[in-house]
Design a protein around this nucleic acid. Structure first.
Lengths: 209, 209
DNA sequence: CTTCCTGTACCCTGATCAGGTGACACATCA
DNA sequence: TGATGTGTCACCTGATCAGGGTACAGGAAG
């Protein structure tokens, strides 16, 4: 049973090239291809593809919005973005929306077949530069400065960050309210803040918890 | 000029296989290989490799800690993790620590050469299942429930989340303190919370800000 | 052995916040 | 036209928090 593929791409030349390319081997069946996503929900429901190749820059409905719409009712279909955009915004929006892969058009010819195979095997085919963007974004998300908090202080700060009042923390940890207050005061000193919210805000944003 | 490669791998058989494999083509020069990371800082400074292949499970100092140590003084060397671990904790810890690629050992023979080339070209070689884990983690990070906050309420909540007191918000927005309080009370209602910290905690964790 | 750090605990004063109630102008929508 | 939603403002009471100080036991480090 061939893999059913659905294509959204507004450039007619590329759309037909893709169709032709995929039809060569016999492993793939392009069940349809459209120049825009205005009917994407109906089309996906109707055609039940295994894989969708999705351009981003299209008239009427862009490819990222289309992915969002598809994901409202179908988590199973594998979606590979196929685009010229390699900026942060497009890449991450597409990922958040629910794409499973992201290929830059300049590398398509080399990688398309392999990528379709990979996404069906539970992978996430990405052009190298895209993969690097993704993991770089994860890395810069943690400077994690060290404020020399003691274990007990970290524990208190965690409770605080989850929304517990001083009183609740005292009960939870089975210590007196004043002890909690003492810890909190020391935390304020070390974090250079002077209120709960500042402390919690700093703790969460700098991943101290 | 061949690519200089440094290997950390405690299994002697694998370590030597890797060395031999990489030496075959002449494009790569294995400048050293070690069974543990106890001297990693000195070794990297001394040998100045272009690429490091890093196992995770090693005696004395594990590979993730070693990556952290390397990144304290060298951002340029490309580090590829080479491991059997495919669980969330190991993968993300390695990425956070500063790895540039992550290959599962079972696929090494196929992909090693290609991955080294890719990481040097600014990519981030990952085994397919790892890549999928990474982008899945990005996706589930945004449920973004809708609490029907009005624009003004979102604005107030943002100020609050940055650590501003009621008084500061009032001054900043040029409205009365009581008005701020009214907005905050309505926010509490909509978010089903009853204190600043709960609200801020919820706002940050659910990406309402 | 003494100093320093950590965790514990108490007290006091003034500031800030929570929860409730009430009010009014303006806009939209039915 | 009336209902509803939004943004504005006010007052009151009790709870909670901030900032200051003081104290002491136990452990680590010098």
């Amino acid at each position: 049973m061939p893999v059913r593929i659905l294509i959204y791409e507004d450039n007619i030349n590329l759309r037909e090239s893709l169709s032709n390319l995929l039809s060569l081997t016999g492993d793939y069946q392009v069940c349809a291809s459209y120049p825009d996503c205005s009917g994407v929900i109906m089309q996906v429901k109707e055609l039940m593809p295994d894989v969708i190749l999705m351009d981003i820059d299209m008239p009427l409905v862009n490819g990222i919005e289309a992915v969002r719409r598809i994901r409202t009712f179908n988590q199973a279909v594998q979606i590979i973005m196929l685009t010229v955009f390699d900026d942060n915004t497009h890449v991450f929006d597409a990922m958040y929306a629910g794409a499973n892969g992201y290929l830059l058009k300049k590398y398509i010819s080399d990688k398309l077949m392999h990528s379709i195979r990979e996404v069906l095997d539970g992978g996430a085919p990405m052009s190298p530069s895209i993969a690097r963007m993704v993991i770089t974004s994860m890395q810069k998300a943690e400077p994690a400065r060290d404020y020399q908090l003691t274990p007990r202080e970290k524990e208190i700060l965690q409770f605080l960050s989850r929304g517990n009042s001083f009183k609740m923390i005292a009960i939870e940890l089975n210590i007196s309210l004043d002890t909690v207050r003492t810890h909190i005061k020391r935390i304020y000193d070390k974090l250079h803040v002077c209120s709960q919210i500042e402390a919690v805000s700093k703790a969460i944003n700098e991943k101290l918890v």
